[in-house]
Simulated scan of single mutants.
Amino acid sequence: MSANPQLVREMLNRDLHAAQRLQVLLTQERELLQQRDHEALTALIREKNDHLALLEGHAKERAALLQALQIDGSGSSWETFLASDEPLSQLIPLWQQLQQEVRQCHDLNNHNGKLVARSQQTLKQLLDLVRGKSQGGGLYDASGSAANNASSNTLTRA
């Protein structure tokens, strides 16, 4: 049993376009995170989640195709599947491009995650400062010893 090469091409092209659109959204997300534009970020995150759901649905379709063809669904299954048939083997570069685009999405998402984590850390430090909770391990006391300045000095008392 073999798959229709045109159908497989359409599946891969559809996934490729969705992954490229997700890259654009992730790049826009990075810019909005840097600008701290939370209103625009909310709408963009909705669209990003829609594209992630779309890509997940496409991955399930690809897995179902492999299952219908009684092919193991391990990591390199698609490349093996494409190489197994001459008309399908012409689609290997398209599959590899899709894999590259997905890796790029992953990298962009990781970068955005680091920006979010950094923003959260900065916000926590600012809130702690306003509340008078000092993390201070880098201060020295009168004797020159490192002091864990854990005293509670609120911003109004400082």
Rank of each mutant, 00 (worst) to 15 (best):
N153D: 08
L139T: 13
T154Y: 12
S134L: 08
L22A: 06
Q121L: 02
L82D: 04
T42D: 12
E79H: 14
D72Q: 12
R14S: 15
C105N: 04
A158G: 13
L94A: 14
L26M: 09
S134K: 07
A146R: 15
A142H: 11
I45T: 15
I71D: 02
D128G: 08
Q70N: 15
E86T: 10
E29A: 02
A158N: 13
L139I: 12
N110H: 09
L129M: 09
A63S: 15
L12D: 02
I92R: 05
E79P: 05
R157H: 10
C105H: 05
S151L: 11
Q90L: 11
L155A: 14
L65D: 03
L115G: 01
R103P: 02
L16V: 06
T122E: 02
T154C: 09
L25P: 01
A64G: 13
D107V: 08
V102P: 04
Q97I: 00
Q125S: 01
L66P: 00
E56R: 15
G138W: 00
G75V: 00
V116R: 06
D15F: 03
S76A: 10
R157S: 15
L25N: 01
A43M: 08
H106D: 10
S89C: 08
L66D: 05
M11G: 09
L155K: 14
R14T: 14
S151D: 12
L127V: 08
G132H: 03
Y140A: 10
Q23V: 00
A18H: 04
A53M: 10
T27C: 08
N149P: 02
L82R: 01
G57T: 06
G138H: 07
Q90M: 09
Q125C: 03
A53Q: 14
V102K: 04
N153V: 07
L82I: 05
L22W: 03
P93S: 14
L98Y: 03
D37A: 14
Q70R: 15
E10W: 01
I45Y: 07
Q70W: 09
A43P: 03
F81V: 01
Q34G: 11
L32Q: 02
K124D: 03
M11S: 14
S76W: 00
L7K: 14
L126Y: 03
L52V: 11
T122L: 04
Q104S: 13
N109T: 05
L108P: 01
N109M: 06
H106I: 00
L129A: 07
E86H: 04
E61Y: 08
L65A: 05
N4C: 12
L41R: 00
E29W: 02
E31Y: 00
A68K: 12
L12R: 05
L55A: 07
N153S: 11
E79W: 04
L55Y: 06
Q97Y: 03
A3Y: 03
